[in-house]
């Protein structure tokens, strides 16, 4: 294997990581688990090589998962395995656990990170889909020294294009509110047994029921990929708010998806027509499940490991 990078660095703080990137002036790149990066470097075709790789998996604040006062901060370098094994997340961000649980196989989940999933900026990435439904924010350390929390959706600029330049900036962490009373979430996806390891379609939903626990008070839905970036399905959400849980609202939500979302055909992955129908299948699987979790307050992740 030809030399894809020259030197390898293991900083222990975010500042150190940013400084390293700055010093290499574009010649270095962040590596977390490497499950996307190593493949891109080897087979991306661009003959890209780097002077340095900056490994962020030993930066303490980037690997911690810290629940605090109804919120949770998940370090960007937390592995999928760490996310899946976290009980607070299983209960309070079930969709995220379910989506990290179907990424690759154990060896990939053991090193692949949530931050890498987001930074890679593919609309179909599983962890990303759930973070969008959780209305997460991202903590970004920009190369110019600024550090700020931003809405997750604002990071995506196009397929594979992120506002975070991994040769300059560092995604430090994510935060979102953990599901509380009358809240629940779920993630489901469709895979095909052939071809690349990205879902045909993924669907994450988060709902809050009203006091009666019979009606949706609020809902957030992310179906991906239906656009160049992962986006919330506003029209679908609108059909749910204030409506009773049940077939009528579900049908309306499905109808809104058909009416407003138009997934495309992608070669050797799925036809647009199939994806359209899968929006329905997934909504019909994920929504009632999330509502049930919200109603009962009991949530255990489904399908982990059987991606």
């Amino acid at each position: 294997m030809s030399q894809l990078w020259q030197t390898y660095h293991l900083p222990s703080t975010v500042e150190e990581a940013v400084d390293l990137l700055t010093n290499f002036a574009g010649g270095a790149r962040i590596i977390a688990g490497g499950t996307d990066l190593m493949i891109d470097l080897r087979f991306g075709g661009g003959h890209a090589t780097f002077d340095a790789l900056v490994d962020v998996t030993r930066v303490a604040e980037m690997i911690q998962i810290t629940p605090n006062d109804g919120w949770c901060v998940v370090g960007a370098a937390a592995t999928h395995t760490a996310v899946v094994g976290n009980r607070d997340l299983e209960h309070g961000a079930t969709c995220l656990v379910e989506s990290c649980g179907v990424v690759g196989g154990p060896q990939v989940r053991n090193v692949g990170t949530l931050g890498g999933n987001v930074a890679h900026a593919l609309p179909a990435a599983d962890g990303t889909t759930s973070l969008v439904a959780l209305d997460a924010e991202a903590d970004v350390a920009w190369g110019d020294g600024r550090r700020e929390w931003l809405p997750i959706a604002s990071l995506f600029r196009g397929p594979g294009i992120s506002a975070v330049d991994s040769s300059r900036d560092v995604l430090v962490a994510f935060r979102f509110r953990l599901s509380g009373e009358r809240e629940g979430s779920a993630f489901k996806r469709i895979m095909r047994p052939q071809g690349v390891a990205l879902p045909v379609l993924g669907c994450a939903v988060w709902v809050r029921l009203d006091e009666s626990r019979q009606r949706y008070e609020d809902a957030r839905v992310c179906l991906s990929p239906v656009a160049a970036t992962p986006v919330r399905a506003d029209a679908v959400e609108a059909e749910l708010r204030g409506q009773p849980v049940g077939e009528a609202s579900l049908s309306a939500a499905v109808a809104a998806a058909y009416a407003t979302l138009h997934p495309r055909t992608s070669k050797y992955r799925a036809t647009g027509e199939y994806r359209e129908h899968m929006m329905e299948t997934l909504l019909r699987r994920a929504l009632p499940l999330a509502a049930e979790r919200a109603r009962t307050g009991v949530a255990s992740a489904e399908g982990v490991g059987m991606g």
């Binding site: 294997m1 390898y8 590596i31 490497g34 499950t35 190593m38 493949i39 080897r42 087979f43 790789l53 490994d55 395995t81 690759g104 196989g105 154990p106 060896q107 990939v108 053991n110 090193v111």
Partner: peptide, 23 residues
Amino acid sequence: EEAECGICTVHVNGTPVNSCIFP
């Protein structure tokens, strides 16, 4: 060398990883 086949699996600090893509 694509993290696909898993036959290169070794344990690093007790955790199985694909050594082909592990710097």
